[in-house]
Design a protein around this nucleic acid. Structure first.
Lengths: 201, 201
DNA sequence: TCATAAAGTGAAACGGTTACACATTATGAT
DNA sequence: ATCATAATGTGTAACCGTTTCACTTTATGA
């Protein structure tokens, strides 16, 4: 299945050595205190090779894993239980991801703290996260029967992604997330269900 | 009134010379094609002096003006006509700002194009714009009688600011803005007016 | 077996940014 | 008016991330 010649194996090994060395050094001494020359040295490759493997630059060394998160976002929208709104489904997904992160092994906690305390890494992570906006918007549009580039779908996708960074670091993150998605849920059902206006008073 | 000693005048002059030289060169040959050494040269100061005046770095040279925009955001919320919701007031403000930009003098159009076509400047502008989030959120909270750090207010502030970048560059920007703020308006009145639920059907 | 292309190398450079030690000069108090 | 002081500016040299270039090594598949 997976073409695993010696070449690709060595390539993967080199890449892994670089990512490992980088993460270890970053955790030991801080992101800014470690230079790319030193990382290359530690992985026993040249600086040129380092940048061949990570054209995204120094920050990319930290984010080596492929993204299941995007697939999860799309799936949450597409495969949600009947009767559940899209914002609700997204909220549930993000809540689960959060709780899974809280009870991660300490290695992962250190990893998160590294990102949290390093502006460059926070920015990079934010960019990666927001890069799912279009895919998520497309999934929402498809599910709601709206045209692909519909601004409402784009907005909902963006806002849902932003919600994560909005509640990040709060002690009341859980309830804050609920409140934000209550806003989105109200707004979304408002602009999707046509003219189902309230007659009360 | 304004303490205007010779010293401060010279300082302001140097700063202006730097900003002017930078903008002129950027517009002539592109942001990436002009180095800070060259800018300092053109303004007849040392590179060290350049960075003393613009600690924000090369990007800061382009954004020399103080921010009336933040004050405008707060005022839009605070001084809105009776009966108008906060999202509506923000939408009106942003719509006005947009239309004013469209009919700006060509100098300003070039300026905007420069920012638009330069990733580093786009990022910087985004960061500056988003830096008003907390102030705007505070204004919203104050007006709605909610606690300062209320997540709903934070979210509304962030989403309203994000709306600008969401509609940016679209040909249907006007209607897209309406649609996004319709979402926010529905959502916001939903989470602020307690239990005024719809009894219809 | 061999041409090819992928992977890696080493050194040099570039551009933004900062550190350092130093010069100049406006300012305000004596 | 004098003078200590602090703000402003200078020049050089470095640091760091990143790219370029010309070059070597080596796995691959025809």
């Amino acid at each position: 299945m997976t073409e695993t010649g010696r070449r690709e194996r060595k390539k993967a090994a080199t890449r892994q050595a670089l990512a490992d060395a980088a993460l270890r050094l970053f955790l030991e001494r801080g992101y800014d205190a470690v230079g790319v020359r030193e990382i290359a040295e530690a992985a026993d490759v040249s600086v040129t090779t380092l940048f061949k493997h990570f054209p995204g630059g120094k920050e990319a060394l930290v984010f080596d894993q492929g993204d299941d998160r995007e697939a999860a976002l799309v799936a949450a929208v597409r495969d949600r239980p009947a009767g559940q709104s899209i914002p609700q489904a997204l909220r549930d997904l993000l809540r689960d991801e959060r709780s899974r992160q809280v009870r991660g092994d300490p290695r992962f906690a250190d990893f998160l703290r590294l990102i949290d305390t390093t502006p460059a890494l926070r920015e990079y992570a934010r960019r990666m996260w927001l890069s799912h906006q279009d895919t998520l918007a497309a999934a929402i549009a498809a599910d709601a029967g709206l045209p692909g580039g519909d601004p409402g779908c784009q907005a909902l996708a963006r806002f849902a992604l932003d919600a994560v960074t909005l509640v990040h670091g709060r002690d009341d993150a859980e309830t804050a997330l609920d409140r934000i998605f209550a806003l989105l849920d109200n707004g979304w059902t408002g602009i999707t269900t046509e003219a189902e206006s309230c007659q009360g008073t």
